[in-house]
Design a protein around this nucleic acid. Structure first.
Lengths: 368, 368
DNA sequence: AAAGTCATGCCCATATACATGGATCGACAC
DNA sequence: GTGTCGATCCATGTATATGGGCATGACTTT
């Protein structure tokens, strides 16, 4: 039987009211073939998220309507393993549930996207394969830090992790720790191969139509995409989580917080880039037209936002995709080159070598 | 024995960690003559507030240091009745405490300042004392709405209330309800005597040096002071509490949200106004100099911020103070006039009559 | 209550910053 | 190597910030 999570906007309710409503759900759930598993509630913001096993969306809706009349504003089908990794549980927490206790845990989570990219070695003598397990070591360093700060890895992509935190402060500390470790590693000569970028956003499980935590995950990923090596980029919603401190956790070196306008521009830009990145005919003027600004404007905005010119940004994006394809050994080098929007194999090789320090043919260093 | 509340900034901690630390406090509290009553914890922001009965500040500090090493960042002496009215409890909540359960209730509260002012009757025929209990009725209407939305009255000043909410959404709904009721009352001819202004801020119990919830209370009060009749003014921190919705609860008619710069300017302004309001020699140019801007600038900023020109604003402020003094029967009318910065009795009477529809001598309408 | 005076409120002209788009020069694609 | 494309500069336009000055009306005095 599928599992659903819904969102209720419940003005006027206290934690006790919602606990009461949940009990009502439990009383009549059998009539609709449902099982109300647990819920999350944010008293301050007046939002509740219920997790219900049910035959279909409609049953969830009708059960709530009959039990207490609080109909859900949005319902989403979810996977229990995904819910657990984002929110930490799929049933009532140990203490509260049994005695009809009150749950007051917010569904709000901080999402961190961290990506690891190889880079050209600065000392040329290190062409031999002495330390080719470095990406693996880096990934280990990162996942250790995530554990230490109580984060949960939600997705383990080839290029990095998507992580969920219940604590914004822990999330910040974790990012600081990761960048500090990488920085220290780079100080040793043997560890100049990798750069780490981090993006942060905050969100609730059910909102908008991008799926479970969809908006926050997408935003964090895109912020990670535009972060320069060693940098941490935060969505405006992250600043909102630290309203009291003047500038402690968030305004520090290597951290930058976007303003709402910049985030909106970023989404407009990335919608297009993710669609057109492998089109060899795309150029800056066309890109500008699509976004609705002159190429000069586009250039300026992209430099302030991403630290890279439009061309450099697209090339970097293409090379990252190409490197990923090479790692997965998806086709020949020339196929990959053309699939990634390069219109000449030789130019691809030249760019690749400049970026990663190796020719595409030498690339996947770490042997499986 | 006095009671203290402290603030810990605890990066890296979960709710379980803090519950654990609290248990450690309980174990050794007797050695310091302390009694750790309860605590609040905000996992997302990584802040904890402990309530401790102790002989002095130092004992609180030392108990924490020995129990778990997490020393408090700030300690404040508090009154238990005040804590209860702001935060709703002064001991562990019923379900959690007993079984070593985990407390995950944030100390963050929304503070509402609501003030009621009489105003000139629009229909002149109503000079007789037919409905002179109207202010009392209005206050009743307001306190009913506060109860309905689970607010707690923290202070009952003569001119209005200061209220604490655990839910920002309830707080908003409550303000809407109050203004709606007043609006409806004004539609009836018999109820044109009162206008209601509301200010909102959000804050934590221990921060800065203005005392328990001091900053939030001060800010809410000042926002209430600058609100026009029927308006609701919100501090920037209130917007932070609704990061997800696009513009639902906060961006509505009659509501205005200050930006941080405006709030800072407001505090600069009110620091001076509260100091100099009864100085008859103050004028707009001097006021501008004190704030550090030209009189034109001051005029513009005050109009955008308060909807009133500097002079109108000061006069309104003086008249409100005078009305309050008249209500309390503190001295003769001419004494009150001069104490409130008016340099002529006749002018005071003229302004007063224009503002409230009555001469000062006729003023305190409702007989005790 | 009425009349006089002088500060206040408001408008304008000016200054500043910022956003924008075309032109130019140099680099790099192929 | 060469021709196209992208990075940068500059000139123009737009929005906002600022301070002086004049007519109104706020405030004092009789």
């Amino acid at each position: 039987m599928p599992i659903y999570m819904d969102r209720h906007d419940v003005p006027g309710a206290t934690a006790a009211d919602v606990a009461q409503a949940h009990q009502e759900d439990l009383k009549i759930q059998d009539r609709f073939g449902c099982r109300a598993l647990t819920y999350w509630f944010d008293e301050m913001r007046g939002t509740a998220f219920c997790l219900v096993e049910a035959p279909n969306e409609r049953a969830v809706h009708e059960m709530h309507a009959l039990a207490h009349g609080l109909i859900p504003h949005q319902i989403l089908e979810v996977e229990s393993s995904v819910v657990e990794s984002f929110l930490g549980r799929i049933e009532d927490p140990p203490m509260a549930g049994a005695g009809g206790g009150v749950i007051n845990e917010s569904g709000l989570r901080v999402i961190m996207a961290v990506s690891v990219h190889p880079c050209a070695r600065s000392s040329p003598r290190m062409n031999a394969g002495e330390g080719n397990s470095q990406p693996r070591m880096i990934r280990r360093t990162i996942s250790d830090a995530i554990d230490r700060y109580h984060g949960t890895i939600v997705e383990d992509g080839g290029r990095g992790y998507t992580v969920s935190f219940a604590s914004a402060r822990n999330a910040m500390e974790c990012a600081i720790e990761i960048q500090r470790c990488i920085g220290e590693s780079r100080a040793h000569a043997s560890m100049k191969e990798c750069e780490v970028c981090i993006g942060f956003s905050a969100g609730i499980p059910v909102a908008g139509d991008a799926g479970f935590f969809g908006e926050a995950v997408q935003t964090a990923g895109r912020l990670c995409d535009i972060a320069l090596p060693g940098q941490v980029v935060l969505s405006p919603s992250m600043r909102d989580l630290f309203p009291m401190e003047r500038n402690g956790a968030i305004d520090r070196a290597g951290f930058s917080v976007l303003i709402p306008y910049e985030l909106e521009f970023l989404h407009r830009l990335m919608d297009i880039v993710e669609d057109k990145w492998n089109d060899p005919d795309i150029d800056v003027t066309k890109l500008g037209n699509m976004i609705g600004t002159s190429k000069s404007q586009l250039f300026r905005k992209m430099v302030t936002l991403t630290g890279r010119s439009p061309n450099t940004f697209i090339r970097e994006y293409r090379l990252r995709q190409a490197a990923a394809l090479l790692e997965n050994q998806t086709g020949t080098i020339s196929e990959i080159a053309y699939e990634c929007g390069f219109s000449s194999l030789s130019y691809f090789s030249k760019c690749f070598k400049k970026r990663y320090g190796l020719l595409p043919s030498e690339y996947p260093v770490d042997a499986d």
